[in-house]
Amino acid sequence: MSISSKSINRINKAVETQNTPAKVALIPPPKTSEQDASSTEASETSGITQKLPDYLL
């Protein structure tokens, strides 16, 4: 199979698996009472600051 066909297969597979759980285990940030009160903003933290994501390692 050519590089282009293999690449297209990889793209299809990547899109199909996009909604499966993340490979990186997320450690939720410790909740402070302040964060508990703010709803949408707090969820954006998503533990990224706790653990260096794959792409920065």
């Binding site: 590089i3 282009s4 793209i11």
Partner: peptide
């Protein structure tokens, strides 16, 4: 180009990995 499509596949792999962010 062949490497253009190869790069595109790498990009989609990356996007799939960071979907949670």
């Amino acid at each position: 180009s062949p490497w253009g499509l190869f790069g595109l596949a790498n990009l989609f792999d990356f996007l799939s990995d960071i979907k949670y962010v």
